[in-house]
Design a binder for these strands. Structure first.
Lengths: 211, 211
DNA sequence: GCTACACTACACCGTGCAGTGTAGTTACGA
DNA sequence: TCGTAACTACACTGCACGGTGTAGTGTAGC
């Protein structure tokens, strides 16, 4: 499509790899692993089924690749949301607003259409289909640790009373993000995302405000 | 086995129905819907496959029955936990202990071996396999409403400051029960359930304690 | 033009599984 | 003792799907 301007070596290869991964991701997350056929993945990726098998050896390996990719995307999205919303902390008065922006940034951009929840389901349900190392290695630890690190800084600055930053991060996620990711995906849920986040942040601040 | 002492009419029938339901429940929750074969359900229930199909028409109907049964069991267990731990509220000093007992009662007895989490996964993942009415009708609303009703009473008694009892109930569940149900099921998770609940209750009380 | 390579199209195999049909066995009530 | 209903054992169908093998096509470098 676009003029390569560089070496065209292996470019088509990378494109196809990505197309397959994206198609598999969308299908696995929406329909589930078992109900997604490799024929459909190939068709959705605009690629022959044989190519799918040439790139990724079998279905389980493809799943592992999808999981890795999604976890990584989530992790970087969370980190960016932290950088954009929580690094410059003006004063206690604006902490609530900053936290709301942070939570909303994650729920809308990173998680998008409740990908996070779908991924969780996928991981727990399909845990037996993944090489053991992978299913325990990640466990969403990284994003929460990043939040915890930030909260530790808030504690030092007197904006938060969080002697156990990791626990505070867990509670923050539980109050703001988890309710959204778990309720979505069900028909007719129709929750007010903004209200959930605002009320979650307020409850969090009542519990973790210093003094 | 035991002497009937009454009419033996239809007893075998009810026994078999139950055996099938239990076997299906265990298998669906542990292995997932798609990966559970009807032959295995029949074998596990000690019943011929034909009988399974005579009792429940097809696999989806069996799933619906399992969901109904589990939701109902959960609902009654929550109600009983409320009755046993939260009806007699001595004073504010013992509220923390009462709430901890309540949360632990749910996580250990009702939810048992993280059945709740597995059910959730099952519901979200297999939502397309259920008649639409069922997947929206329940949505764990009933148990949370029961908790909300109790919290409203606490608010009237001055034990809690919960102007929106339902929101408080959501936050309570998010802080104490949800973390456990979602982290379990993964290998090597090994969380300290008691600590999670105690810390969750404390954070909740910091956020909802009056004055 | 030739070779090498990436890819497609397509046929194909084996298997597991939902669901059915049925003959035979057991138990029980009249 | 007979009839009936519940249940089992088992064979069987149809199908979807994971995975493979291969012949053929387009493309790029030499």
């Amino acid at each position: 499509m676009a003029a390569p301007a560089g070496k065209s070596i292996r470019e088509g290869s990378a494109q196809k790899r990505s197309a397959i991964l994206l198609a598999a991701r969308a299908l696995f997350l929406s329909d589930g692993f078992d109900r997604t056929s490799m024929d459909l993945v190939a068709a959705e990726a605009g690629v022959s089924k044989r190519t799918v098998y040439d790139y990724y050896g079998d279905k389980r390996t493809l799943l592992a690749a999808v999981v890795d990719h999604t976890v990584e995307a989530l992790s970087t999205a969370v980190q960016r949301a932290i950088d954009e919303n929580l690094v410059v902390v003006p004063d206690a008065a604006q902490l609530e607003h900053a936290l709301v922006s942070f939570a909303e940034s994650i729920t809308v951009s990173a998680i998008g259409s409740s990908d996070y929840a779908a991924l969780m389901r996928l991981l727990y349900t399909e845990a037996t289909n993944l090489p053991e190392t992978r299913s325990m290695a990640w466990n969403a630890e990284e994003p929460e640790d990043a939040v915890a690190t930030r909260f530790a800084a808030f504690d030092r600055d007197g904006l938060l009373h969080a002697p156990d930053p990791r626990l505070a991060a867990d509670h923050f996620v539980a109050l703001t993000i988890s309710p959204l990711t778990s309720s979505l995906g069900v028909v007719g849920a129709e929750v007010d995302e903004h209200r959930v986040i605002v009320e979650g942040v307020r409850a969090f601040l009542r519990a973790y405000r210093p003094f």
